[in-house]
Design a binder for these strands. Structure first.
Length: 424
RNA sequence: GUGGUUGUAGCUCAGUUGGUUAGAGCGCCUGGUUGUGGCCCAGGAGGUCGGGGGUUCAAAUCCCCUCAAUCACCCCA
């Protein structure tokens, strides 16, 4: 039975579940377009260098998690591990470089060769947005507010936003200096990971979870005192705007985030209902070097993990509605009746009315059992006798009442019933 | 990549210290009504006990390997 399971970290998503996915996607389209965003569909694989340059060679994602392969032309390609780099690649053919604002959203599968765990798959799905070309605190705030708007619309009203500022590139050096001086003498008491982070990726020390490290981190000086006045003012304005937008947030100087390209605002959205993977969305402002460009492009954006949104919905019990049942079931006894039913079903379906019907030779009892299982409201029954008389029996399943309807009027009668049922 | 747990029917799971034809509930199919559902009753289909190897007279059960799922770490969405 386990002979044909999909590869590790991937999954088949069948109808009832797929409806929930479509809701996440449709709601994204609805909400984001209200903010002036348009959909952008980029390829699911890109030249490998798009991600290497975009995310930074040192990033863990690039180093060990990418699905990279060579195609028949000897090109090195990579299944996208995230959405931003591909979006930027697409956008560099537009006039964003000249300061024209581009607002795009996307959703789709991403691929990372990690060990699967709760809320983490190898093919996972993100819905995200990028606002590219302009720099302003209000844009950052609007972006965060839009994310919260979206979450509320998919049944997650109580997620928590954590924000922080990373300053600009020029702020980084003095701030790192400050941290280095603080951590250097204390490295002996810290975990092995932090020791290598100290050399390779100093900032990641800040979100180390080791007990010993946390204490030391907690007492670290606020590196933001080394930031320029402009950077701090930018952040203040972002927060003021969030207040004005009535978007509650928590400020956390330890929020750093994994990718190198962030500047100014960074944020993460978490939900308490999740176990170890508490993060359901994350993003921030960035400066990205597009292939073939000498200047970086500014932008702000976020990505939300769809699997995790579904997990939160489950925890909240806000995963709704099983799909609508088909209202009609057509029972046919005998070849002629079944053929007539097939015709009738076609007629109704062309009008957009869902119909289920029996196409095989089965007993009345079996067909009614099926009708019952589909949850049909009305059942049309006909056999040789009805065919000869030019009528059909219409049965109301809830009450068991039956009435005869001329065959010629069937489509209209069912249509009318359907329209009024829809109205209720 | 590291560690823990798990793997028996479509689903949820039993299976006693190894012992003959491997079970239940739900679901599915058929019948109980020459053409009437839900409830009830009866019957039926469906399993290489994840896979491979080993120990044994005998393995779903014990040992090894492997695959997969799951959880945690790591990383992130």
């Amino acid at each position: 039975m386990a002979s044909f399971t999909p590869p590790p970290g991937t999954a088949d998503i069948f109808a009832p579940e797929a409806v929930r996915w479509r809701r996440l996607e449709n709601t994204a389209a609805t909400v984001f377009s209200c903010y002036g965003y348009g959909e952008l569909r980029t390829p699911v694989f890109e030249y490998t260098e798009v991600f290497q340059r975009g995310l930074g060679d040192a990033t863990e994602v690039v180093q060990k998690e990418m699905y990279t392969f060579e195609d028949r032309g000897g090109r090195s390609l990579t299944l996208r591990p995230e959405g931003t780099a591909g979006v930027m690649r697409a956008l560099c053919n537009t006039d964003v470089m000249n300061g024209v604002e581009q607002r795009v959203y996307y959703y789709g599968p991403m691929f990372r060769g990690e060990r699967p765990a709760a809320g983490r798959r190898r093919q996972f799905h993100q819905v995200g947005v990028e606002n590219v070309g302009r720099v302003a605190p209000l844009i950052d705030a609007e972006c965060i507010a839009m994310l919260m708007d979206y979450l509320a619309r998919v049944g997650i009203p109580d997620a928590e936003v954590v924000v922080n500022t990373r300053g600009i590139q020029a702020d980084r050096e003095p701030a790192e200096q400050l941290l280095r001086e603080y951590f250097a003498p204390r490295l002996g008491e810290m975990c092995p990971d932090c020791k290598t982070r100290f050399e390779k990726n100093l900032w990641r020390i800040l979100d180390c979870k080791e007990e010993a490290c946390r204490k030391i981190i907690h007492d670290a000086p606020d590196y933001r005192q080394a930031f320029s006045a402009e950077s701090l003012a930018y952040f203040e304005e972002v927060k003021r705007a969030l207040d004005a937008l009535k978007t509650p947030y928590r400020e956390d100087p330890l929020l750093v985030r994994g990718l190198d390209y962030y500047v100014h605002t960074v944020f993460e959205v978490t939900h308490s209902s999740l176990g170890s993977q508490t993060s359901i969305a994350g993003g921030g402002r960035y400066e990205l070097y597009l292939p073939g460009q000498s200047r970086p492009v500014p932008g702000v954006g976020f990505a939300a993990g769809m699997e995790r949104l579904l997990m939160v919905q489950d925890a909240l019990g806000s995963s709704p509605e099983s799909p609508v049942s088909t209202p009609f079931y057509l029972i046919g006894l005998g070849a002629d009746a079944r053929l007539a039913n097939l015709e009738l079903a076609g007629e109704l379906r062309r009008r957009g009315i869902p119909v289920a019907l029996e196409l095989e030779e089965r007993s009345m009892k079996a067909q009614l059992r099926s009708a019952n299982k589909t949850g049909a409201l009305l059942t049309v029954v006909r056999g040789d006798a009805e065919m000869a008389a030019g009528i059909a029996v219409v049965k109301v399943m809830a009450t068991g009442e039956q009435s005869e309807v001329p065959a010629a009027e069937l489509a209209k009668r069912l249509d009318d019933f359907y329209q009024t049922a829809q109205g209720i």
